[in-house]
Design a protein around this nucleic acid. Sequence first.
DNA 1: GTTTGGAAGTTTACTTCCAAACTTATACCC
DNA 2: GGGTATAAGTTTGGAAGTAAACTTCCAAAC
Lengths: 226, 226
Amino acid sequence: MEEFQIDMNEFLPLRDVVFNTLRSAILTGKLKPGERLMEVHLANRLGVSRTPIREAIRKLELEGLVIMIPRRGAEVARITEKSLKDVLEVRRTLDALSVELACERIREEDLERLQKACEEFERAAKGKDASVIAKADVALHDIIVAATGNERLVQLVNNLSEQMYRYRFVYIMEESQHDMLVAEHREIYESIAGRDKERASKAAKLHIDNQEESIMKQIRMENQRN
Amino acid sequence: MEEFQIDMNEFLPLRDVVFNTLRSAILTGKLKPGERLMEVHLANRLGVSRTPIREAIRKLELEGLVIMIPRRGAEVARITEKSLKDVLEVRRTLDALSVELACERIREEDLERLQKACEEFERAAKGKDASVIAKADVALHDIIVAATGNERLVQLVNNLSEQMYRYRFVYIMEESQHDMLVAEHREIYESIAGRDKERASKAAKLHIDNQEESIMKQIRMENQRN
DNA sequence: GTTTGGAAGTTTACTTCCAAACTTATACCC
DNA sequence: GGGTATAAGTTTGGAAGTAAACTTCCAAAC
């Protein structure tokens, strides 16, 4: 387990700070799948008592990031090929829904922001910094989902994306893929700008399918090593 | 607030028992939207200490059934027309996905169970007992979603259905709708049996659209009264 | 060599306690 | 009478303590 430190600047209940801290530790791989989350240990490490730790773990459990074993405690959820396939299958549909709704509902103002985000991603993709690319990617997708105006959809898509967060770098790192990613994003932007639901939906699904391929390749490699 | 009692027979951690108790109290309307959930109060009423109550509330928060106001506590989430529309919009898509996947993946054995469930619903619809009809309805849909083999999808659809639980009786009670419900279910069954994804998807979406209409009518009536 | 019994050590589950913050009510001033 | 201030009473947030369950490890029996 690498270092991870609590961010005290946030003005939130401790349980939420702990929740965010643990979540990002899991998503960035600082806490590895199968690793046990022990209350006293975490409490000492984060400098809080066990109560906020426990409350945070309950929420992580419902998010699917940790699993509880009764009387044994929590451990970071293991990601199997099956579980990721399941997540991607749902996300594929919800992303398609998102772009379709965006076609209907996006305001001109947000369309401009989307265009800017697209260009921003293009610039980022030319560079080598994966975290910059990842940020640009997230920003772009956030604009689309937000444009649906459906808060529940936003919440669900975010949660599903989260599950694959650990594998994002796989397809972002492959430089050979960058041109394709840029092209896919542009295709999505243009179909939304043209309010073409059919085309947007196809593009969104293809985008996920390509990601799935990269990620699955990666997982199979990891599993071979173990 | 009506009576609700903890079910001690379950062999589960107290927090889960409390979680289930509170959830069903909310879903059946024993706890009303906007009602405050005060920890000591609930603790006394359910005969436990505050900790399991608090942990249960954290989970309900993430499920969207209660909302937290910092330093003030939790209250039962209010259902607005918008929030239900959002839920239904997502569910419409996920139900369509479910039946499409079921077309591909359902085993003959489960197809038979689905047929039986269909007939069972038909019988129930002839009777007057709404809770029997509701149960038959749930059983039928459970078979379909389970047939997708996608655990994440099962979890999400269940959670979304839950949000509308309070309004289920609206469209189940209207006897004039019974024939339509039976016909819709049969259409869904037949298209799955015929492995016709296109037709199944259309039927599932129509099924939701009709429910949406009933529910929205009901909500507008409720809002007028307030 | 394997399995069973049990003791020691962890770790969770739940309770209890305390302090800080928010509400409400009352009194005082203008 | 209205408004502010302050004090009392709730209620949450967080910490610490206790007991029960689960591990682990070692030894004895088969």
